[in-house]
Design a protein around this nucleic acid. Structure first.
Lengths: 240, 240
DNA sequence: CTGGCGCATTGACCTGGGTTATCGAAAAAT
DNA sequence: ATTTTTCGATAACCCAGGTCAATGCGCCAG
Protein backbone atom coordinates (compact mmCIF):
# COMPACT_ATOMS: atom_id res chain seq x y z
CA UNK A 1 0.00 0.00 0.00
CA UNK A 2 1.17 3.55 -0.73
CA UNK A 3 2.91 5.59 1.93
CA UNK A 4 0.38 8.20 3.11
CA UNK A 5 3.14 10.64 3.96
CA UNK A 6 4.34 10.61 0.37
CA UNK A 7 0.76 10.75 -0.82
CA UNK A 8 0.00 13.81 1.25
CA UNK A 9 3.13 15.75 0.34
CA UNK A 10 2.70 14.72 -3.28
CA UNK A 11 -0.51 16.76 -3.37
CA UNK A 12 1.39 19.93 -2.58
CA UNK A 13 4.25 19.68 -5.01
CA UNK A 14 5.21 17.31 -7.77
CA UNK A 15 7.79 15.06 -6.25
CA UNK A 16 10.52 13.42 -8.26
CA UNK A 17 11.21 9.72 -7.84
CA UNK A 18 14.22 10.75 -5.85
CA UNK A 19 12.06 12.88 -3.50
CA UNK A 20 9.72 9.97 -3.02
CA UNK A 21 12.60 7.65 -2.31
CA UNK A 22 13.99 10.07 0.27
CA UNK A 23 10.68 10.34 2.06
CA UNK A 24 10.16 6.61 2.06
CA UNK A 25 13.58 5.94 3.40
CA UNK A 26 12.98 8.47 6.19
CA UNK A 27 9.97 6.34 7.17
CA UNK A 28 11.97 3.14 7.22
CA UNK A 29 12.28 2.92 10.97
CA UNK A 30 8.73 2.54 12.27
CA UNK A 31 7.19 2.05 15.71
CA UNK A 32 3.90 0.69 16.93
CA UNK A 33 1.88 1.88 19.90
CA UNK A 34 -1.38 1.01 21.53
CA UNK A 35 -4.30 3.42 21.64
CA UNK A 36 -4.25 6.15 24.29
CA UNK A 37 -0.52 6.44 24.53
CA UNK A 38 1.18 9.80 24.61
CA UNK A 39 3.90 10.30 22.05
CA UNK A 40 4.99 13.43 23.86
CA UNK A 41 3.60 15.46 26.75
CA UNK A 42 3.12 19.12 27.54
CA UNK A 43 6.27 20.33 29.29
CA UNK A 44 8.54 17.77 27.63
CA UNK A 45 11.45 19.07 25.58
CA UNK A 46 10.47 18.75 21.93
CA UNK A 47 11.77 15.63 20.27
CA UNK A 48 11.89 14.39 16.71
CA UNK A 49 9.17 14.94 14.12
CA UNK A 50 6.41 12.32 14.32
CA UNK A 51 4.91 11.02 11.11
CA UNK A 52 1.67 9.03 11.36
CA UNK A 53 1.61 6.04 9.03
CA UNK A 54 -1.36 4.06 10.38
CA UNK A 55 -3.95 4.95 12.98
CA UNK A 56 -5.01 8.27 14.40
CA UNK A 57 -3.64 10.59 17.06
CA UNK A 58 -4.43 14.04 18.37
CA UNK A 59 -2.82 17.08 19.84
CA UNK A 60 -4.54 18.04 23.07
CA UNK A 61 -4.29 20.08 26.18
CA UNK A 62 -5.58 19.10 29.61
CA UNK A 63 -7.37 21.69 31.71
CA UNK A 64 -6.75 22.18 35.39
CA UNK A 65 -10.26 21.05 36.32
CA UNK A 66 -9.89 17.85 34.33
CA UNK A 67 -11.44 18.58 30.96
CA UNK A 68 -9.46 18.37 27.78
CA UNK A 69 -9.43 20.22 24.50
CA UNK A 70 -8.34 18.44 21.35
CA UNK A 71 -6.38 20.85 19.17
CA UNK A 72 -5.87 18.80 16.06
CA UNK A 73 -6.68 15.37 14.75
CA UNK A 74 -3.80 13.55 13.10
CA UNK A 75 -4.45 10.85 10.53
CA UNK A 76 -2.08 8.80 8.41
CA UNK A 77 0.20 11.08 6.43
CA UNK A 78 0.07 13.86 9.01
CA UNK A 79 3.19 14.91 10.81
CA UNK A 80 3.90 17.29 13.60
CA UNK A 81 6.01 20.28 14.14
CA UNK A 82 8.76 20.50 11.65
CA UNK A 83 10.54 23.12 13.69
CA UNK A 84 9.48 22.55 17.29
CA UNK A 85 12.97 21.59 18.19
CA UNK A 86 13.86 25.27 18.54
CA UNK A 87 11.39 25.67 21.42
CA UNK A 88 12.20 24.99 25.03
CA UNK A 89 9.24 22.79 25.84
CA UNK A 90 6.00 21.45 24.38
CA UNK A 91 2.95 23.59 25.08
CA UNK A 92 0.58 20.68 24.45
CA UNK A 93 0.59 16.89 24.31
CA UNK A 94 0.22 14.45 21.46
CA UNK A 95 -1.43 11.09 22.05
CA UNK A 96 -2.74 8.22 19.98
CA UNK A 97 -6.46 7.58 19.61
CA UNK A 98 -6.05 4.13 18.10
CA UNK A 99 -3.26 1.61 17.86
CA UNK A 100 -0.81 3.33 15.56
CA UNK A 101 2.22 2.93 13.36
CA UNK A 102 4.49 5.93 13.13
CA UNK A 103 8.01 7.12 12.39
CA UNK A 104 10.22 9.48 14.27
CA UNK A 105 12.40 11.61 12.06
CA UNK A 106 15.26 13.22 13.96
CA UNK A 107 15.68 16.92 13.55
CA UNK A 108 18.88 16.77 11.48
CA UNK A 109 17.38 14.23 9.13
CA UNK A 110 14.37 16.48 8.69
CA UNK A 111 16.56 19.43 7.83
CA UNK A 112 18.50 17.42 5.30
CA UNK A 113 15.23 16.29 3.77
CA UNK A 114 13.91 19.81 3.46
CA UNK A 115 17.15 21.11 2.09
CA UNK A 116 17.53 18.30 -0.41
CA UNK A 117 14.96 19.44 -2.93
CA UNK A 118 12.94 22.56 -3.70
CA UNK A 119 9.85 20.42 -4.24
CA UNK A 120 10.14 18.94 -0.76
CA UNK A 121 10.79 22.35 0.75
CA UNK A 122 7.67 23.64 -0.93
CA UNK A 123 5.58 20.63 0.05
CA UNK A 124 6.55 20.98 3.70
CA UNK A 125 5.79 24.69 3.70
CA UNK A 126 2.38 24.14 2.20
CA UNK A 127 1.60 21.33 4.63
CA UNK A 128 2.51 23.66 7.46
CA UNK A 129 0.36 26.48 6.10
CA UNK A 130 -2.58 24.15 5.58
CA UNK A 131 -2.25 22.98 9.18
CA UNK A 132 -2.42 26.59 10.27
CA UNK A 133 -5.45 27.10 8.07
CA UNK A 134 -7.10 24.18 9.81
CA UNK A 135 -6.39 25.73 13.21
CA UNK A 136 -7.99 28.95 12.05
CA UNK A 137 -10.98 27.08 10.66
CA UNK A 138 -11.46 25.44 14.06
CA UNK A 139 -11.45 28.86 15.69
CA UNK A 140 -14.10 30.02 13.25
CA UNK A 141 -16.18 26.94 14.02
CA UNK A 142 -15.96 27.36 17.76
CA UNK A 143 -16.61 31.06 17.63
CA UNK A 144 -19.37 31.35 15.09
CA UNK A 145 -21.01 28.02 14.34
CA UNK A 146 -23.62 26.24 16.40
CA UNK A 147 -23.15 22.65 17.40
CA UNK A 148 -24.76 21.16 14.31
CA UNK A 149 -22.80 23.29 11.86
CA UNK A 150 -19.67 22.60 13.85
CA UNK A 151 -19.97 18.85 13.78
CA UNK A 152 -20.92 18.85 10.11
CA UNK A 153 -17.97 21.10 9.34
CA UNK A 154 -15.51 18.87 11.14
CA UNK A 155 -16.80 15.82 9.30
CA UNK A 156 -16.45 17.58 5.94
CA UNK A 157 -12.89 18.47 6.81
CA UNK A 158 -11.96 15.03 8.01
CA UNK A 159 -13.63 13.39 5.06
CA UNK A 160 -11.64 15.43 2.56
CA UNK A 161 -8.40 14.99 4.43
CA UNK A 162 -8.97 11.26 4.71
CA UNK A 163 -9.79 11.05 1.03
CA UNK A 164 -6.59 12.89 0.21
CA UNK A 165 -4.60 10.03 1.62
CA UNK A 166 -6.80 7.33 0.18
CA UNK A 167 -8.75 6.38 3.28
CA UNK A 168 -12.22 6.73 1.76
CA UNK A 169 -14.25 4.65 -0.60
CA UNK A 170 -17.19 6.43 -2.16
CA UNK A 171 -18.92 8.24 0.64
CA UNK A 172 -17.64 6.31 3.58
CA UNK A 173 -14.39 6.05 5.36
CA UNK A 174 -12.79 4.74 8.48
CA UNK A 175 -13.07 7.31 11.23
CA UNK A 176 -12.19 5.82 14.60
CA UNK A 177 -13.41 8.69 16.75
CA UNK A 178 -15.53 8.21 19.84
CA UNK A 179 -18.22 10.74 20.60
CA UNK A 180 -16.09 11.74 23.56
CA UNK A 181 -13.13 12.63 21.36
CA UNK A 182 -15.39 14.57 19.03
CA UNK A 183 -16.81 16.44 22.00
CA UNK A 184 -13.29 17.22 23.20
CA UNK A 185 -12.45 18.56 19.76
CA UNK A 186 -15.57 20.67 19.26
CA UNK A 187 -15.87 22.16 22.72
CA UNK A 188 -19.15 20.33 23.35
CA UNK A 189 -20.25 17.63 25.75
CA UNK A 190 -20.48 13.99 24.69
CA UNK A 191 -24.18 14.09 25.47
CA UNK A 192 -24.76 16.90 23.07
CA UNK A 193 -22.57 15.37 20.37
CA UNK A 194 -24.84 12.37 20.58
CA UNK A 195 -27.93 14.52 20.10
CA UNK A 196 -26.39 16.26 17.10
CA UNK A 197 -25.30 13.00 15.49
CA UNK A 198 -28.84 11.73 15.77
CA UNK A 199 -30.14 14.90 14.20
CA UNK A 200 -27.72 14.64 11.27
CA UNK A 201 -28.65 11.01 10.78
CA UNK A 202 -32.38 11.78 10.77
CA UNK A 203 -31.71 14.62 8.33
CA UNK A 204 -30.13 12.06 6.00
CA UNK A 205 -26.84 13.92 5.85
CA UNK A 206 -24.40 11.52 7.50
CA UNK A 207 -24.03 8.67 9.91
CA UNK A 208 -21.19 7.90 12.25
CA UNK A 209 -20.96 4.57 13.93
CA UNK A 210 -18.64 1.73 14.72
CA UNK A 211 -15.59 3.71 13.70
CA UNK A 212 -16.96 4.48 10.25
CA UNK A 213 -18.30 7.65 8.72
CA UNK A 214 -20.98 7.35 6.06
CA UNK A 215 -21.69 10.46 4.08
CA UNK A 216 -25.29 10.09 2.96
CA UNK A 217 -25.73 13.41 1.20
CA UNK A 218 -22.62 15.47 0.58
CA UNK A 219 -24.45 18.53 -0.68
CA UNK A 220 -26.70 18.60 2.29
CA UNK A 221 -23.86 18.09 4.75
CA UNK A 222 -21.72 20.81 3.19
CA UNK A 223 -24.71 23.16 3.20
CA UNK A 224 -25.43 22.52 6.87
CA UNK A 225 -21.78 23.10 7.70
CA UNK A 226 -21.40 26.19 5.57
CA UNK A 227 -18.34 24.38 4.31
CA UNK A 228 -15.85 26.04 2.00
CA UNK A 229 -12.71 24.03 1.47
CA UNK A 230 -10.52 26.96 0.47
CA UNK A 231 -8.59 26.69 3.72
CA UNK A 232 -7.43 23.21 2.77
CA UNK A 233 -6.00 24.69 -0.41
CA UNK A 234 -7.24 22.16 -2.88
CA UNK A 235 -10.24 22.13 -5.13
CA UNK A 236 -13.31 20.65 -3.48
CA UNK A 237 -14.42 17.59 -5.34
CA UNK A 238 -16.51 15.93 -2.70
CA UNK A 239 -18.63 14.15 -5.26
CA UNK A 240 -15.70 12.52 -7.03
CA UNK B 1 11.90 54.92 19.36
CA UNK B 2 13.00 51.31 18.94
CA UNK B 3 11.71 49.25 16.04
CA UNK B 4 9.17 46.79 17.52
CA UNK B 5 9.93 44.24 14.82
CA UNK B 6 13.55 44.12 15.91
CA UNK B 7 12.47 44.13 19.53
CA UNK B 8 10.17 41.18 19.04
CA UNK B 9 12.61 39.03 17.06
CA UNK B 10 15.37 40.00 19.46
CA UNK B 11 13.51 38.12 22.20
CA UNK B 12 13.79 34.90 20.28
CA UNK B 13 17.44 34.93 19.32
CA UNK B 14 20.36 37.15 20.05
CA UNK B 15 20.72 39.30 17.00
CA UNK B 16 24.01 40.73 15.88
CA UNK B 17 24.25 44.39 14.97
CA UNK B 18 24.28 43.26 11.40
CA UNK B 19 21.03 41.33 11.87
CA UNK B 20 19.44 44.37 13.43
CA UNK B 21 20.61 46.54 10.61
CA UNK B 22 19.19 44.14 8.05
CA UNK B 23 15.81 44.10 9.75
CA UNK B 24 15.70 47.84 10.07
CA UNK B 25 16.61 48.36 6.49
CA UNK B 26 13.86 45.95 5.44
CA UNK B 27 11.45 48.27 7.27
CA UNK B 28 12.72 51.37 5.52
CA UNK B 29 9.84 51.66 3.11
CA UNK B 30 6.75 52.26 5.27
CA UNK B 31 3.09 52.93 4.55
CA UNK B 32 0.28 54.51 6.49
CA UNK B 33 -3.37 53.50 6.48
CA UNK B 34 -6.53 54.57 8.17
CA UNK B 35 -8.42 52.33 10.56
CA UNK B 36 -10.69 49.66 9.08
CA UNK B 37 -8.78 49.19 5.89
CA UNK B 38 -8.02 45.75 4.54
CA UNK B 39 -4.40 45.03 3.81
CA UNK B 40 -5.43 41.91 1.96
CA UNK B 41 -8.69 40.02 1.50
CA UNK B 42 -9.81 36.43 1.53
CA UNK B 43 -9.50 35.11 -2.00
CA UNK B 44 -6.70 37.49 -3.00
CA UNK B 45 -3.44 35.98 -4.16
CA UNK B 46 -0.99 36.25 -1.26
CA UNK B 47 1.30 39.24 -1.50
CA UNK B 48 4.31 40.37 0.46
CA UNK B 49 4.86 39.92 4.18
CA UNK B 50 3.23 42.68 6.25
CA UNK B 51 5.07 43.97 9.29
CA UNK B 52 3.13 46.13 11.74
CA UNK B 53 5.15 49.06 13.05
CA UNK B 54 2.46 51.22 14.65
CA UNK B 55 -1.21 50.55 15.28
CA UNK B 56 -3.15 47.32 15.43
CA UNK B 57 -4.65 45.00 12.85
CA UNK B 58 -6.37 41.64 12.83
CA UNK B 59 -6.81 38.57 10.76
CA UNK B 60 -10.48 37.80 10.33
CA UNK B 61 -12.99 35.82 8.40
CA UNK B 62 -16.48 36.94 7.45
CA UNK B 63 -19.36 34.52 7.77
CA UNK B 64 -22.03 34.10 5.16
CA UNK B 65 -24.73 35.43 7.45
CA UNK B 66 -22.74 38.55 8.21
CA UNK B 67 -20.90 37.80 11.44
CA UNK B 68 -17.18 37.84 11.63
CA UNK B 69 -14.56 35.90 13.55
CA UNK B 70 -11.28 37.53 14.44
CA UNK B 71 -8.50 34.97 14.15
CA UNK B 72 -5.55 36.90 15.47
CA UNK B 73 -4.75 40.33 16.78
CA UNK B 74 -1.66 41.94 15.34
CA UNK B 75 0.19 44.60 17.27
CA UNK B 76 3.39 46.49 16.50
CA UNK B 77 6.20 44.04 15.84
CA UNK B 78 3.89 41.33 14.55
CA UNK B 79 4.13 40.18 10.99
CA UNK B 80 2.13 37.83 8.85
CA UNK B 81 2.74 34.75 6.91
CA UNK B 82 6.34 34.30 6.09
CA UNK B 83 5.53 31.65 3.55
CA UNK B 84 2.01 32.37 2.34
CA UNK B 85 3.33 33.19 -1.06
CA UNK B 86 3.36 29.48 -1.90
CA UNK B 87 -0.42 29.30 -1.54
CA UNK B 88 -2.88 30.03 -4.31
CA UNK B 89 -5.12 32.40 -2.39
CA UNK B 90 -5.70 33.85 1.06
CA UNK B 91 -8.13 31.90 3.21
CA UNK B 92 -8.82 34.93 5.42
CA UNK B 93 -8.50 38.70 5.39
CA UNK B 94 -6.24 41.07 7.27
CA UNK B 95 -7.48 44.53 8.17
CA UNK B 96 -6.40 47.41 10.37
CA UNK B 97 -8.20 48.22 13.60
CA UNK B 98 -6.57 51.61 14.04
CA UNK B 99 -4.63 53.96 11.83
CA UNK B 100 -1.44 52.06 11.19
CA UNK B 101 2.11 52.26 9.97
CA UNK B 102 3.45 49.13 8.35
CA UNK B 103 6.00 47.74 5.92
CA UNK B 104 5.61 45.30 3.09
CA UNK B 105 8.56 43.02 2.63
CA UNK B 106 8.55 41.30 -0.75
CA UNK B 107 8.94 37.58 -0.76
CA UNK B 108 12.46 37.49 -2.20
CA UNK B 109 13.68 40.03 0.31
CA UNK B 110 12.18 37.95 3.07
CA UNK B 111 13.99 34.86 1.86
CA UNK B 112 17.28 36.70 1.67
CA UNK B 113 16.72 37.95 5.19
CA UNK B 114 16.02 34.51 6.54
CA UNK B 115 18.94 33.00 4.70
CA UNK B 116 21.35 35.71 5.76
CA UNK B 117 21.87 34.63 9.34
CA UNK B 118 21.18 31.61 11.52
CA UNK B 119 19.97 33.90 14.30
CA UNK B 120 17.36 35.46 12.04
CA UNK B 121 16.30 32.06 10.74
CA UNK B 122 15.84 30.89 14.29
CA UNK B 123 14.00 34.03 15.35
CA UNK B 124 11.54 33.72 12.47
CA UNK B 125 10.91 30.05 13.21
CA UNK B 126 10.22 30.76 16.84
CA UNK B 127 7.93 33.66 16.00
CA UNK B 128 6.02 31.36 13.70
CA UNK B 129 5.75 28.62 16.32
CA UNK B 130 4.62 31.10 18.96
CA UNK B 131 1.92 32.34 16.60
CA UNK B 132 0.74 28.78 16.21
CA UNK B 133 0.78 28.37 19.96
CA UNK B 134 -1.43 31.41 20.22
CA UNK B 135 -3.89 29.93 17.74
CA UNK B 136 -4.04 26.77 19.81
CA UNK B 137 -4.52 28.75 23.00
CA UNK B 138 -7.48 30.50 21.39
CA UNK B 139 -8.99 27.14 20.54
CA UNK B 140 -8.58 26.05 24.14
CA UNK B 141 -10.24 29.25 25.31
CA UNK B 142 -13.19 28.94 22.98
CA UNK B 143 -13.67 25.27 23.69
CA UNK B 144 -13.19 25.06 27.42
CA UNK B 145 -13.34 28.46 29.09
CA UNK B 146 -16.43 30.42 29.99
CA UNK B 147 -16.79 34.02 28.92
CA UNK B 148 -15.10 35.51 31.98
CA UNK B 149 -12.09 33.22 31.86
CA UNK B 150 -11.87 33.78 28.13
CA UNK B 151 -11.78 37.53 28.30
CA UNK B 152 -9.34 37.48 31.20
CA UNK B 153 -7.13 35.06 29.29
CA UNK B 154 -7.07 37.21 26.19
CA UNK B 155 -6.15 40.27 28.23
CA UNK B 156 -3.30 38.39 29.92
CA UNK B 157 -2.01 37.34 26.53
CA UNK B 158 -2.26 40.78 24.99
CA UNK B 159 -0.72 42.40 28.01
CA UNK B 160 2.35 40.19 27.87
CA UNK B 161 2.70 40.52 24.13
CA UNK B 162 2.34 44.29 24.33
CA UNK B 163 4.88 44.44 27.10
CA UNK B 164 7.31 42.41 25.03
CA UNK B 165 7.44 45.20 22.52
CA UNK B 166 7.51 47.97 25.06
CA UNK B 167 3.89 49.10 24.85
CA UNK B 168 3.12 48.88 28.56
CA UNK B 169 4.01 51.03 31.52
CA UNK B 170 3.49 49.38 34.88
CA UNK B 171 0.10 47.74 34.75
CA UNK B 172 -1.47 49.67 31.94
CA UNK B 173 -1.03 49.79 28.23
CA UNK B 174 -2.58 51.11 25.12
CA UNK B 175 -5.12 48.64 23.81
CA UNK B 176 -7.29 50.15 21.13
CA UNK B 177 -9.89 47.38 20.96
CA UNK B 178 -13.60 48.07 20.91
CA UNK B 179 -15.90 45.72 22.73
CA UNK B 180 -17.15 44.68 19.32
CA UNK B 181 -13.69 43.57 18.20
CA UNK B 182 -13.21 41.69 21.44
CA UNK B 183 -16.54 39.99 20.94
CA UNK B 184 -15.55 39.05 17.38
CA UNK B 185 -12.33 37.59 18.72
CA UNK B 186 -13.83 35.63 21.62
CA UNK B 187 -16.90 34.24 19.92
CA UNK B 188 -19.19 36.27 22.17
CA UNK B 189 -21.65 39.10 21.60
CA UNK B 190 -20.71 42.72 22.31
CA UNK B 191 -23.50 42.85 24.88
CA UNK B 192 -22.02 40.00 26.81
CA UNK B 193 -18.48 41.34 26.55
CA UNK B 194 -19.80 44.46 28.20
CA UNK B 195 -21.29 42.45 31.05
CA UNK B 196 -18.05 40.56 31.58
CA UNK B 197 -15.94 43.71 31.52
CA UNK B 198 -18.13 45.19 34.21
CA UNK B 199 -17.77 42.04 36.26
CA UNK B 200 -13.97 42.10 35.98
CA UNK B 201 -13.92 45.75 36.92
CA UNK B 202 -16.10 45.16 39.98
CA UNK B 203 -13.88 42.23 40.92
CA UNK B 204 -10.93 44.64 40.90
CA UNK B 205 -9.00 42.60 38.34
CA UNK B 206 -8.81 44.90 35.34
CA UNK B 207 -10.43 47.82 33.58
CA UNK B 208 -10.65 48.49 29.87
CA UNK B 209 -11.74 51.84 28.61
CA UNK B 210 -10.91 54.62 26.17
CA UNK B 211 -8.40 52.43 24.37
CA UNK B 212 -6.41 51.63 27.47
CA UNK B 213 -6.09 48.49 29.54
CA UNK B 214 -5.44 48.87 33.26
CA UNK B 215 -4.41 45.75 35.08
CA UNK B 216 -5.56 46.29 38.65
CA UNK B 217 -4.55 42.94 40.09
CA UNK B 218 -2.35 40.70 38.00
CA UNK B 219 -2.53 37.72 40.30
CA UNK B 220 -6.27 37.83 40.42
CA UNK B 221 -6.62 38.25 36.66
CA UNK B 222 -4.26 35.38 35.90
CA UNK B 223 -6.10 33.20 38.40
CA UNK B 224 -9.48 33.97 36.87
CA UNK B 225 -8.10 33.22 33.41
CA UNK B 226 -6.30 30.04 34.39
CA UNK B 227 -3.43 31.66 32.57
CA UNK B 228 -0.19 29.82 31.93
CA UNK B 229 2.16 31.63 29.61
CA UNK B 230 4.07 28.57 28.48
CA UNK B 231 2.54 28.82 25.02
CA UNK B 232 4.18 32.22 24.53
CA UNK B 233 7.51 30.56 25.24
CA UNK B 234 8.93 33.08 27.61
CA UNK B 235 9.04 33.18 31.37
CA UNK B 236 5.99 34.81 32.91
CA UNK B 237 7.02 37.88 34.86
CA UNK B 238 3.75 39.72 34.97
CA UNK B 239 4.72 41.52 38.15
CA UNK B 240 7.91 42.99 36.74
C1' DC C 1 -18.71 -17.55 29.68
C1' DT C 2 -18.90 -13.81 32.64
C1' DG C 3 -17.84 -9.65 35.00
C1' DG C 4 -16.33 -5.11 34.35
C1' DC C 5 -15.57 -1.00 31.92
C1' DG C 6 -15.85 2.32 28.52
C1' DC C 7 -18.96 4.05 25.25
C1' DA C 8 -23.59 5.21 23.29
C1' DT C 9 -28.24 6.68 24.20
C1' DT C 10 -31.87 9.17 26.22
C1' DG C 11 -34.67 12.00 29.49
C1' DA C 12 -35.47 16.00 32.78
C1' DC C 13 -33.99 20.09 34.14
C1' DC C 14 -31.18 24.42 34.39
C1' DT C 15 -28.11 28.32 33.13
C1' DG C 16 -24.71 31.06 30.48
C1' DG C 17 -24.83 33.69 27.05
C1' DG C 18 -27.64 35.18 22.92
C1' DT C 19 -31.29 38.38 21.19
C1' DT C 20 -33.63 42.55 20.89
C1' DA C 21 -34.27 47.09 22.15
C1' DT C 22 -33.26 51.62 23.99
C1' DC C 23 -30.40 55.68 25.28
C1' DG C 24 -26.56 58.69 25.87
C1' DA C 25 -21.92 59.91 24.73
C1' DA C 26 -17.90 59.97 21.68
C1' DA C 27 -15.92 60.38 17.52
C1' DA C 28 -15.97 60.96 12.77
C1' DA C 29 -17.66 63.14 8.75
C1' DT C 30 -19.36 67.19 6.22
C1' DA D 1 -20.71 73.53 14.23
C1' DT D 2 -23.77 70.17 13.35
C1' DT D 3 -25.04 65.97 11.52
C1' DT D 4 -24.14 61.04 11.30
C1' DT D 5 -22.22 57.06 12.78
C1' DT D 6 -20.22 54.19 16.04
C1' DC D 7 -19.62 52.73 20.68
C1' DG D 8 -20.78 51.65 25.46
C1' DA D 9 -24.16 50.61 28.94
C1' DT D 10 -28.30 48.20 30.57
C1' DA D 11 -32.63 45.81 30.89
C1' DA D 12 -36.06 41.95 29.68
C1' DC D 13 -36.60 37.80 27.79
C1' DC D 14 -35.32 33.23 25.67
C1' DC D 15 -32.93 29.07 24.00
C1' DA D 16 -28.85 26.11 22.79
C1' DG D 17 -26.28 23.41 25.02
C1' DG D 18 -24.65 21.95 29.70
C1' DT D 19 -25.57 18.98 33.83
C1' DC D 20 -27.13 15.08 36.16
C1' DA D 21 -28.86 10.64 36.11
C1' DA D 22 -30.12 6.13 34.52
C1' DT D 23 -29.87 2.24 31.18
C1' DG D 24 -28.03 -0.75 27.82
C1' DC D 25 -24.54 -2.60 24.80
C1' DG D 26 -20.16 -4.46 23.09
C1' DC D 27 -15.72 -5.92 24.03
C1' DC D 28 -11.87 -7.57 26.45
C1' DA D 29 -9.64 -9.99 30.44
C1' DG D 30 -9.65 -13.56 33.32
Amino acid sequence: MPNPFVQKLGRYASLSDEDTRLLESACRDTRRTAARRDLIREGDPPGPVFVMLEGWACRYKLMREGGRQVLALLMPGDFCDMHVAVLDEMDHSIGTLTPALYTEIPRERMETLIASSPALTRAFWIAQLVDEGVLRAWIVSMGRRDSTERLAHLMCELYIRARNVGLCIDGHCEMPLTQIVIADALGLTPVHVNRVLRKLKVAGAMELGRGTLHIRDVESLARIAGFDDNYLHRRLKLAA
